[in-house]
Design a protein around this nucleic acid. Sequence first.
RNA 1: GGGCGCGUGGUCUAGCGGUUAUGACGUCACCCUGACACGGUGAAGGUCGCCAGUUCAAAUCUGGCCGCGCCCA
Length: 940
Amino acid sequence: MERLRRHAPGARDRRFPPAPRSGPGPGDDGARGGRGARRDRPGRPREGRPLSATALPPRFEPGPIEARWQEAWQRLGTFRAPDRPSAPPFALILPPPNVTGILTIGHMLGDTVMDVLVRRQRARGRAALWLPGTDHAGLSTQVEVRRRLQKEGVDFGALPREEAVARVQAWKDEHEPRIREQIRAGGFSVDWSRYRYTLDPASARATRVAFVALFDAGLLYRGERMVNWDPRLETAISDLEVVHREEETELLYVRYPWADGSPGGIEVATVRPETIFGDVAVAVHPDDERHRAEVGRSVRVPIVDRIVPVITDPSVDPEFGAGALKITPRHDPVDREIFLRHPDLAEPDEIFDPRARLLGPGVPAELRGLGREEARKRTTERLAADGLLLRRERHRHSVARSERSDAVIEPRLSTQWFVRMRPLAEPVEQAVRRGEIRIWPERWRRTFDRWMEELQDWCISRQIVWGHPVPVDYCRACGRTIASVERPTECPGCHGRELAADPDVLDTWFTSWLWPFAALGWPEPTADLARYYPTSVLVTGRDIMFFWVARMMMAGYRFAGARPFSDVYLTGMVRDAEERRMSKHLGNSPDPIAVIRERGADAMRFALVFPNPTDDDGPFGTASLDGGRNFLTKLWNLVRFTVGHLPDGLAPPRAPPSLGPGSLLENRWILARYHRTAGSVDEALEAFQVTRAATDLHGFVWHDLADRYVEIAKEALAGRRGEPARRETEATLAFVLERTLRLLAPFVPHVTEELWHALPHDGELLATAPWPSAAEVAPDPSAETAIAPVLEAIRLFRNLRAEEEVPLDASPAAWIRPAGDDGARLLAAESATIVRLARLGRLELLTPDAPAPPGSASRVAPEAECYLERPATSPRKVDALARERERLASLLAKARSRLGDDGFRHRAPPQVVEEAEAKARELEERIGRIDRHLEEAAKA
RNA sequence: GGGCGCGUGGUCUAGCGGUUAUGACGUCACCCUGACACGGUGAAGGUCGCCAGUUCAAAUCUGGCCGCGCCCA
């Protein structure tokens, strides 16, 4: 008590210069609200002791703390990567989010993982660069702007190109600050001085250079191919932007009558009757007996009466429908393939316009201009009216939709630019096979490999305005295709001056895939590129593994001549309370800014990495946020307690306290536990196991440090175990806590920074403090072993108290019978601790042959037998002991049956047999003791 | 249709040949204890999806089945 008073005010006065605390803010006195009212209830006067015993306010308020440190880090340039690093670099790029989008909690997960990795490496002395950026997200941004303008009554499609671009640009300018603010608010240690944007001039140059290089290498081609056409957005999209979903539709059985007028015809099953106008043939399987006689005959296409042949093709599935397939080569990829295998078939007419409305000479006039839905309905009606509709069936099948607009994809022949992927893929496949690029968690390797094997060419041209133009001109005179970095003024072939620029823009990913080097300055030979490429690790969501990660690898080898990163860490998807993936699309992600404002960035960050694994899909919600907040509050109070109990001017812990044989067991133990924790955190983070590291730290802080160590150490800190013990304990606590804050800093940087400044420490900022080495402390397994019986005794006495309903304010007498001499010495030495933590009146050691103290309840541990004086009112029951006996008996039965098995005795390793025997002996012995206790209890 | 992955107390999860199966949340009981009720102490709760097999020994390895998810067509 006296000591507390002596030291606490001093502690309150301690200010470390770099702490930009601006004095107690609102709420700092903590004596408000329900809790304060309860605490100050009558009968418990609080006068006479310092209200706030520490430099830290009683209540943890993240808001002001986070704002203050973010500002300080920014002002001091803490996260600015060195221009001339003297240390080995550790670089990573922030996957550039959509510049006009809102970050989701999923982004925060990836960002937190990255921050943990990069802050640790920075602390380990690496030249750390975390490069932030944003993506122009061509299609999705244009779609968004188009939708907004539509609400204002402006038809985006009708705007001149320049104006359309200007509109999107305005939208981007308006939104860019918001996304930057979101990244900032999370406390992520990015280097803002290197911020890049995928549509800035340097990115434009990189994009053009890459395009021209591929073009010159013959890896680009332009041609009329079947592409995924989004009729709502009126552009081609890549395979990856298409999502397949099972949907219920109607399967129609239609009769195609014989051309020669003979009765009957061939029965064709289709889900797309409206494409009938594009039919060029009906195909059956060559081995299909049912149709053998029909091959070579001709049929009339219903409604239009065009005459087409019946052909054979092995790709027809004889099981589907009636085994006959109508062939519409312009609107189905499979049909296209079949068509190309039959050169004698007539070239089909186009039957849809770019919005997928029926069009063209082959379409009956009354159906022209109809959308697909309506066209299908009307065609079906016509077929029925003509008596050609044989039957209709419900049918589930996979429907391709545009990821962006949700429109049903119309496979369509159109002229587009493509990248030949096969040659680009090879170095990547090798790199992954050789382990030059590692994928974490490893289980995604297979998925990755398989996708690489089946790689399709990549359609990169888009019929939109927002993006980098395809850097190609066409000579009007000679028709030459000119791809060049600078726009040409004349045709290099015929010197014609009339050039037409390609009207399309490039897929956004065509810029993004260059990002690891383009963001560092490529194609210019910049200093950053030389120093920070290849980057170290890429962290991103699994959902863009193919879109982005795989393509970056290809681009890295192709353009930068090296892997873009050595490791890929794929995070899981964050789910909402209903288990749905959080996505911008669903709008079910809370705004990170709101979460941060309400709970703090640190709480959010911790909730994202603990307890659900960062590489698995998992829920995020108030429960996890509460967990994060609770942990931070625990930490806060732990430091607050510590600060209040350390003497003024205690030297910063430059080295662990040197503990000798006379040292307190708890001090040796907590150092040993710290050593173990620091080691396992390192091990976990080296293997990208962020959650394991967080879990270890959480358990260490809460259970070892707070629940056990501090509770035991209170006695020494209060000076009741002598001056040397107090000094040793102070030094140990100060050391362990300071190091623990450094280990926690990458996860929860703000609160740890704040707390660190309240403790004795070296250096200006926790954010730049070195990463602690576990090796600084020697392992001490004997301390860990020695403390176990003490903790177990405390647990059993507490257990007995609860069991026997001992009132809280009672201090019953207790007895303990140690199992051996070592145990006796140890328990004698630590008996004060046991007495205090179990709230005992006194604790006597019993000799092995001493009788059970009368009127006592007992429990039996391997190392000791514990007896507790029963209160007069105690319920007379021995359930716990009896239940324990039962449990041990079943274990013993299992152990005995194993030992009775000859196979086990002969084939198991001797060590295992010995262990089993020892265990059985121990169990027998313990059961024997329990039986004795039960007898005694029965007698009493 | 093809491929990949996952099933562990009510929920989420660790463990991945020999452990008395880990932890978090939730539940129950007692408690405002000189850091913390966003807390403390104690307790209850699991035949590790099912069935075979391999093995002296299976939550852990193999096969089949069931259920769920993801990717690709």
